[in-house]
């Protein structure tokens, strides 16, 4: 927001309308914050409360007995293997995405690919249509290929969404890099490969890191494909949580959701400056 406007906003009307007006303004500001905080943190804090509630009798406003019993229980039981599985898969998926989509996004951004429109169209479809109806047909195919219930199948199904998402964010990263920089490198005798690694990649690095972390989060949170392809042999965290909540194990499900939330919130805090809105815009659609 520009400075003169701020000054105009804060000084002129208030002096004209007297002190009661500024009290009103403060109250309104307070109300806006209170409502926003309640809207966003209300549901989230419920999860935290439930995760440390050993006993909670209605209608007590707070848990009757507090404790970390369910946290301990969660870490001793099957949840730990689901946690390990989810993180393992997310890391593998992020690395594969990085290797496959960074060069592809670059050639697309620089128009160095034949039939670019058709290629882009193929990568549009998974963004534009619901996943479940398609993934249920993938399940049929994967039964035929003996991939259901295997780690390979699980990684492949995560890759479908992750690749598309990663490609879209990376194309916008590379498009934001000025082409004349590369032209200069060519003029000075740099080869395409040299230019890519020594000119383009260093500039694109923050965007690539942001995109990889978002892919990591996508894979960590993937539910539909994991439920159809992985379960019941390989249970990822979201599926574990779904099962726990289905069995009315409120506390276990809440512990799991708190754990699932932590990576995202951490990234949000740590990467504020890297998270440009065009990357996030692609993220929210998945």
């Amino acid at each position: 927001m520009s400075k003169p406007l701020e000054v105009a906003l804060l000084s002129a009307p208030m002096s004209e309308r007297g002190p009661w007006f500024s009290t009103l303004r403060l109250t309104r500001r307070f109300a806006i914050y209170a409502i926003s905080i309640f809207m966003i943190f209300g549901p989230l804090s419920s999860l935290l409360l439930w995760s440390v509630a050993e006993k909670w009798f209605w209608p007590n406003p707070f848990p009757t007995q507090w404790g970390f019993k369910y946290w301990q229980q969660a870490f001793e039981g099957k949840m730990l293997s689901s946690l390990g599985l989810s993180f393992g898969i997310a890391i593998v998926v992020s690395i594969i995405c990085l290797v496959i989509t960074v060069p592809l996004a670059y050639v697309i951004a620089r128009n160095r690919i034949p039939l670019k429109h058709i290629v882009l169209l193929i990568f549009l479809l998974p963004q534009a249509f619901p996943q479940l109806p398609v993934f249920s047909n993938v399940m049929v195919l994967m039964y035929r290929w003996d991939l259901v219930g295997t780690l390979t199948g699980l990684i492949l199904i995560h890759l479908v969404g992750a690749l598309v998402f990663s490609l879209w964010t990376l194309v916008s990263v590379f498009q934001s890099i000025a082409e004349p920089l590369e032209e200069a490198s060519y003029m000075l005798g740099g080869s395409r490969i040299y230019t890519f690694f020594h000119v383009v990649l260093p500039i694109a690095l923050p965007g690539i890191i942001a995109s990889t972390l978002l892919v990591f989060l996508y894979s960590l949170d993937e539910f539909t494909g994991s439920l159809l392809i992985g379960a019941p042999y390989h249970i990822t965290m979201p599926v574990f949580m779904y099962n726990a909540a289905g069995g009315y194990e409120m506390q276990v499900a809440s512990v799991t959701s708190v754990l699932l939330m932590i990576p995202g919130i951490l990234l949000l805090f740590l990467l504020q400056k890297y998270m440009r809105s065009e990357y996030l815009a692609a993220f929210g659609r998945v």
């Binding site: 549901p43 989230l44 909540a245 499900a253 959701s257 699932l260 939330m261 995202g264 919130i265 949000l268």
Partner: peptide, 16 residues
Amino acid sequence: IPLFVPFVVVGHAMRV
């Protein structure tokens, strides 16, 4: 914040 909270977690949070 909601952008970074997984879909499943949102479902469960609203339920609770």
